[in-house]
C-alpha cells in the first residue's frame, strides 16, 4: 500500500474489489462502506466474518470476494483473525510462503458482535497487539434478526425490543472510545456517504501495522425504516448534524477529520427515519428531541 493520500474523489478506485450479486438488502449502507473499504485495501485480504447481516455475503457456491473469506461466529471473529495471522507469520518465517502470498487480516462485524458479544475477544486481540483491521458496519441494532436493540442502538430509537413511546432508554456505547482506551495503533469512524474521508482513513490504516479499527455507521433502510434511495442523504445528515463525528485516533491523539459547520439540528436527521417517527407523530416530543440535541451539542463543545 502506498503512503500517498487520495487528493480528490476522482482518484477513488473505479474498479470494485467486491462483486455484485450478494443477498444484502437493496440500498444497504453497510455494503456500501464495505465495498469502498475493500476498493482501497485491494484483494490481498482475508475477511474474517462475525455473525451478522453479512454472514450471508458468501453463500455456497457464491462469493462476492476476489480475495479470501472465513466465516467464524458471533463472539470470536478476532480470535479467528489471530489464528490466521499467526499461521501466516509462521509460514512466512519458515519460508513456506513468500511475502507476495501474505494477506491482510480483516475482521468484518456488525454492531451486535462488535459492541456486545464479540467485545471480549476484540479487547484481547487489541491487547495482544494483533496485526489486523477491524471493520464494523454499525447499523445500530441486530439487523439480521429485525433490528432489535443492541449496545449500539441510539437513545430514543424505537426497536422491536424497545417498543415503548420513548424508544430505547439506554445510550449508544462509544465503541471508538472503548478502542482508544486500549491504545490501538489506529482507530477511525467513517461512513459510506463520505467516500473520500473513508478512503483516506482506510489508506492510512493500511499503511500501519497492529490493531486498527474502521467503524462505519451503516444506514439501514430495512432497520431504520426509510426508502433505500435516501441512504446517502441520511448518511450525510448523520455527519452534518454532528450525530456521527468523523474522526481518527493515531499516535495517541484523536483528530476530527470533519467539523460540521454550521451544524444542522438533529431533527433534520431523525425525521428521515421511521425508527424516530414517534418523536414527531402523533405529537412532537420536544423534550426527547431536545435531549438528543443536547447530547450532540455537549459532544461538540468538548471538541477541539
Amino acid at each position: 500500500m502506498s503512503e500517498a493520500r487520495y487528493r480528490s474523489l476522482r482518484e477513488l478506485p473505479g474498479v470494485h474489489a467486491l462483486a455484485a450479486g450478494t443477498a444484502m438488502c437493496a440500498g444497504c449502507g453497510g455494503l456500501e462502506a464495505l465495498h469502498e473499504v475493500l476498493d482501497v485495501l485491494g484483494t490481498r485480504t482475508v475477511v474474517i466474518n462475525a455473525a451478522g447481516c453479512m454472514t450471508l455475503l458468501a453463500s455456497y457456491p457464491f462469493t462476492p470476494f476476489h480475495g479470501s473469506w472465513l466465516y467464524t461466529s458471533m463472539a470470536s471473529a478476532p480470535a479467528g483473525a489471530q489464528g490466521v495471522r499467526d499461521a501466516l507469520d509462521l509460514l512466512r518465517s519458515r519460508g513456506r510462503i513468500g511475502a507476495d502470498d501474505d494477506l491482510t487480516a480483516v475482521v468484518l462485524s456488525g454492531d451486535g458482535s462488535a459492541y456486545g458479544m464479540g467485545l471480549s475477544a476484540t479487547s484481547a486481540a487489541i491487547e495482544r497487539g494483533l496485526d489486523f483491521i477491524y471493520l464494523c458496519y454499525d447499523n445500530e441494532g441486530y439487523g439480521n434478526t429485525g433490528q432489535q436493540t443492541s449496545a449500539a442502538t441510539p437513545h430514543g430509537a424505537r426497536t422491536p425490543t424497545s417498543p415503548g413511546p420513548a424508544g430505547h432508554a439506554g445510550e449508544k456505547k462509544d465503541l471508538f472510545d472503548v478502542w482508544v482506551a486500549h491504545r490501538p495503533r489506529y482507530a477511525a469512524t467513517v461512513i459510506g456517504a463520505e467516500p473520500l474521508d473513508l478512503a483516506r482513513k482506510v489508506q492510512r490504516a493500511a499503511s500501519l501495522a497492529g490493531p486498527r479499527l474502521i467503524l462505519a455507521l451503516a444506514p439501514c433502510p430495512t432497520g431504520w425504516d426509510y426508502d433505500p434511495m435516501h441512504g446517502v442523504d441520511i448518511g450525510r445528515l448523520a455527519v452534518r448534524t454532528g450525530i456521527w463525528p468523523l474522526k481518527e485516533y493515531v499516535d495517541g491523539a484523536v483528530v476530527h477529520t470533519h467539523v460540521p459547520h454550521p451544524r444542522l439540528p438533529v431533527e433534520a436527521y431523525l425525521s428521515t427515519q421511521g425508527r424516530f417517527r414517534h418523536l414527531f407523530e402523533p405529537l412532537r416530543n420536544d423534550a426527547l428531541i431536545g435531549e438528543i440535541q443536547q447530547r450532540v451539542d455537549r459532544y461538540w463543545q468538548n471538541v477541539g
Binding site: R10, H16, A20, M24, G29, H35, A193, P195
Partner: peptide, 19 residues
Amino acid sequence: RCSWVCTTLCPDSAIHAKA
C-alpha cells in the same frame, strides 16, 4: 462523466465507470 459518484455510492458495485 464525473466517473465516481454513482459507482462509488452504489452499495452493490453494480455501476461501472471509466474516466
